[in-house]
Amino acid sequence: MSDPAVQASHLGKAFGTRQVLDDLSFEVAPGDVIGVLGKNGAGKTTLLELMLGFTPPTAGTVSVFGQASQQLSAGNKARVGFVPQQDELIDQLSVADQLKVIASFYPHWDGEFIDRLCGEWGVNPAARIKSLSVGERQKLSILLAFGHRPELLVLDEPVASLDPMARRQFLEQLVEASMDGNSSVIFSSHIVSDIERLANRIWILKDARLAWQGDLDSLKECVVRLHIRGGAETLEAMAISGELSRRRDGDFMTVVVRDFTPAMQADLRGRHGVDVEVESLGLEEIFLELHR
C-alpha cells in the first residue's frame, strides 16, 4: 500500500483533567473518504485539529504525509485543505479579494476551477463578505479549501448551514475530487445521509475513543437488528454475543448486535430453536444503537 496520508498512533488529548481523546490509532489511505460521527462534544473537532497540528497532542503521535503534524513543511501544507466549523472570513473584503489573498499563498491555485464553482454555486465575487448570508459564507469557506486542489481535505461540519441543493452540489464536487483515487477526504458531519453517500470508511467517536473504525459496508453488515420469535422463557434467557440492546414483547424479540455474521443466524436457530430474521440498519440507526 502506498504511504498513508494520515497516520496516528495512540493519540490522546486532554484539557486539564478532561480526557477528550484517548488512545486513538488510525491510518488514512490515499483515496479514502472518511466520515467522522459522534455526539456533540465527543471530540470530533479536537481530533481534526490534532490531525493538522493546530494543537499538540498530550499523548501519542500523529503525522500527515509522513511528517509530524506539528512540524508540517510548507510543501506539505500546500497539499492540505481545511474547512473549519466557524468560518474565518475577513468581513471587510469582497469575495474576490478574499479568494485572491488566500490564493497568493499557494504555488498552485486553480483560478478557473474556482471561478466556475462560484458561478455554479451562486457565490457573487463582487459581494462584500459582510453582506453574505450564512450559507454563502460556508460555501466560500469550502471554496477557499478547494482552490489549491489539496490531496488531503479535512472538513469540520462543512455543510451544516447549506440547503439541500447546495449540499448536493458540494457532494458532487467531493465525488469529482475523489475520482482520481489519490485524494483523501475526512469530514465530520451531523448530516448522516451525506456521510452515508460518500464515505467508504466510518469513524465513530464515543467516550473519547473510536467505537468503530472501518468500512461503511462492513459496518452495515455487522450491526444488524435480529427479529427473533420463540417461547418467552427461551427468549428471556438467550445470551447473544455482541448484543447492544434488546426489546422483548411476549414471544417476539428484537436484538441489535454489533458483530453479526451469517453463521450467527444459523447458530441461533439451531441452538435455541427460534426463528431469526435479519434486518439491516441505516447509518443513523446504527449510530443511535451504538449510543444506547
Partner: peptide, 8 residues
Amino acid sequence: GHAARLLP
C-alpha cells in the same frame, strides 16, 4: 484562525 497555521 486556522489559516495562519495551514497556509504555507
